[in-house]
Amino acid sequence: MHYTIEINGAQQSVDIDGETPLLWVLRDVVDLKGTKFGCGAAQCGACTVHMDGHPIRACQTPIASVGNGRITTIEAVGESRLGKLVQEAWIELDVPQCGYCQAGQIMSATALLTRTPNPTDHDINEAMNGNLCRCATYTRIRAAIKHAAEAGRA
């Protein structure tokens, strides 16, 4: 099947089986490898991208279901003010260890700050619970979200 979807502001045409997860279209067709494969079961969050600004798991999103949804990936999230602030907070606080989950973390964190500019610990727990970090950098992820929120208020 032929699908045209909007990824990072550009229309992308792909000819592919409609069941194919968005994750593999991003990684292996459109060559955007920042979105990661971790579990293939929506259990780890490494593949989190935005559809119309809201976090979804790309590994459980059939390409046929994307329709007119606007997809944003880690490669372009920094084009938004909040996305950029989140990335800068991650650098400032030196959050990552291995770094593999962090694209997904940043996508979830940016979506959180978009709807909740001043998140409490509870808000962070709920919004970030679907994103595993095997290195357990949670302490710094939490701090970096607050850091970005503060920068957003400035």
């Binding site: 490898k33 979105t35 990936t73 880690i74 490669e75 990335q87 991650w90 650098i91 990552p96 770094g99």
Partner: peptide, 14 residues
């Protein structure tokens, strides 16, 4: 590596 990590640059084995 963090600036590359947070912008999703290809850098892992996968």
């Amino acid at each position: 590596e963090v600036p590359r990590i947070v912008t999703g640059q290809p850098m892992f084995g996968i």
